[in-house]
């Protein structure tokens, strides 16, 4: 793991290059500066994990990087292409061929079967017929979904849906994969499978992967972890894991609790309270609470 921010690599290896990226929602007194002058360069095959408190602008940043949202100022280059200078009508082309999205809520198209959910992405990029169907099936088989090709999303588990959505994101062979909380709706086993898939997508397939997540296990596979707060990247403090909800938090800023010589950090006072309650009930059972 490498928490440093500099790219330090030849320029042509940089797949994603964002500079001075800013998004202001609304205007006047009610304006929200959701993202505020963010610079980010990510190389081919690199996994960057972006963490930060709720409302800090992570999703906003991701949508700008993926060409779904026009920044107020700043620029985004994908594979050397300045997508912020492009006309609105040229952006679908970019999303089709350069970017794949993975979402927290899977975003399956419900009336379509698993394989059709993948195939539709190929269709939109102008690939149809047997070739598209075969490619969609191959992608799903590679993700261990060969036995669920004709299932409707309703009949798939969360982990299966996320694999379909990963296959869909990979359909047009994008250089850049953007994932927003890809494991948040999954149990820990299936969440971990997704973490490993994302690692393979970067390391075996050589794609650039940017993940927004609170999931600690993603830190294990990330090349860099960035901390976004109030729309800016902050010098990352020591990241701690909330023992109650599992969320990543910056140690110095969290709600701390020291118990039997061990300091715990919590995302909120609520989590700390719950943790205290479990501690006291365990003590009442006479059990040791040391980790």
């Amino acid at each position: 793991m490498n928490d440093s921010q500099g790219a330090g690599q030849p320029q042509d290896d940089v797949i994603l290059d964002a500079t001075g990226l800013t998004k202001v929602f609304g205007s006047g007194a009610g304006a929200v500066r959701a993202v505020n002058g963010v610079d980010l360069a990510v190389r081919r095959g690199e996994i960057v994990l972006i963490m930060g408190p709720s409302g800090s602008g992570k999703t906003t940043l991701l949508t700008m990087i993926g060409g779904l949202l026009k920044p107020t100022s700043g620029s985004v280059h994908i594979n050397g292409l300045d997508i912020t200078a492009m006309k609105e009508s040229a952006l679908p082309q970019v999303r089709r061929h350069y970017v794949g999205f993975i979402f927290q809520s899977f975003n399956m198209l419900e009336p379509l079967s698993a394989v059709e959910n993948v195939e539709v992405a190929l269709n939109l990029a102008g690939r149809g017929g047997r070739e598209a169907r075969a490619k969609a099936e191959r992608l799903l088989e590679d993700l261990g979904m060969g036995h669920r090709l004709r299932f409707k999303p309703n009949d798939l588990s969360g982990g299966e849906k996320q694999r379909v959505s990963i296959a869909r994101a990979l359909a047009n062979d994008p250089k850049l994969i953007l994932a927003d909380e890809p494991t948040a709706n999954l149990d820990s086993k299936h969440g971990y499978e997704v973490v490993l898939l994302l690692r393979d997508i970067a390391k075996k397939q050589g794609r650039t992967v940017v993940i927004v997540s609170h999931d600690h296990r993603i830190r294990e596979v990330a090349d860099r972890v960035l901390w976004l707060e109030d729309g800016r990247f902050k010098e990352i403090g020591r990241l701690e894991r909330d023992p109650n909800c599992g969320m990543a938090i910056e140690g110095e800023r969290g709600h701390a609790l020291t118990h039997e010589g061990q300091t715990y950090y919590f995302c909120s006072a609520g989590c700390r309270r719950e943790f205290e309650e479990t501690l006291s009930s365990k003590q009442a059972d006479g059990e040791s609470t040391s980790r």
């Binding site: 993926g66 679908p92 999303r95 999205f101 939109l124 869909r168």
Partner: peptide, 16 residues
């Protein structure tokens, strides 16, 4: 609405 949003994110043009 959400599905059309997903299709846009996946690269559908307005025309499509």
């Amino acid at each position: 609405t959400r599905d059309y949003g997903v299709l846009k994110a996946v690269g559908a043009s307005q025309g499509q």
